[in-house]
Design a protein around this nucleic acid. Structure first.
Lengths: 138, 138
DNA sequence: TCTTGAACCTCTAGTCACTAGAGACATTAC
DNA sequence: GTAATGTCTCTAGTGACTAGAGGTTCAAGA
């Protein structure tokens, strides 16, 4: 049994974040010492590692909730789990697509001005003021 | 002179968002009718278009504030403007990089399970539980 | 056993860039 | 004149935390 600070060190999840996850129902309410401090065991560690890994991969708290539901019922179909992963993947791909468009536009805009002039003539400012100067939609 | 609703239509920025920008100091306080409703002119329209375009490109409210500062002082050096654009670009590139790593990992994870089994054997859940199963850092 | 200092507790509020809703007032079209 | 639509301010909610206040508990050393 170890404290929340120890759990934090082992998982690299900050202490207030652990408490937050508990409040959100991702972590079961921890056992307490007589002095009301939380104590964790291996199971708590594993569950928090799961949560952290999923968060690192960009899954929302809500999605993780569903995944944990499934984890707790080993007999259920895992269709929902793959659905969640696939939709997260689609999400990531959509974000990449959009960011690539932004990257192109920002590259173009940044190159348009060397920063040595005055703001009246600045291509960066002109580009922002006038969407027509953009080469494509973003 | 036109109303906030009209401005909203022309710029595709929602009415509460316009009010929010005013509160944040991005838009000057609008003139009012005798009945206290906001009225805008061409200048207001142009400034809001600028803001919207910059937001679309992912600039923060704070960054836009600085850009507007510069716009209002045409004689100043535009170095700060290019700095902001370049740093925004770096930000976008960093995000793309990270998302690409996530994409790879999620693709691998998603492919590992067809969704037809039970959750106990699900590779998606196993992958999330054990970072060691990942091929690279993300 | 006592003391000290670090770690822990709960609670509230702040972050960012909005969005939603309530309840009241203004404008516009007919 | 009336009815419908638009606008006003204000408060609270979103997601996923983070920061801080003010108080309590724990573990280690004297």
């Amino acid at each position: 049994m170890f404290s929340i600070g120890e759990l934090s060190k082992r998982t690299k999840v900050k202490v207030p974040t652990i408490r937050y996850y508990e409040e959100m129902g991702l972590l079961a309410e921890a056992e307490r010492t007589s002095g009301n401090q939380r104590r964790y065991d291996k199971e708590g560690l594993e569950r928090l590692s799961f949560i952290r890994h999923a968060r690192d991969l960009g899954f929302s708290i809500e999605a993780i909730s569903s995944l944990i539901e499934l984890q707790d019922h080993p007999d259920r179909s895992c269709e929902a789990a793959t659905d969640i992963a696939v939709s997260q993947l689609a999400d990531v791909r959509a974000k990449i697509k959009r960011l690539k468009l932004l990257e192109k536009e920002l590259t173009r805009i940044s190159k348009g001005c060397d920063g040595h002039g005055v703001s009246e003539d600045c291509y960066v400012l002109a580009s922002l003021a006038d969407h027509e100067l953009c080469e494509r939609e973003h």
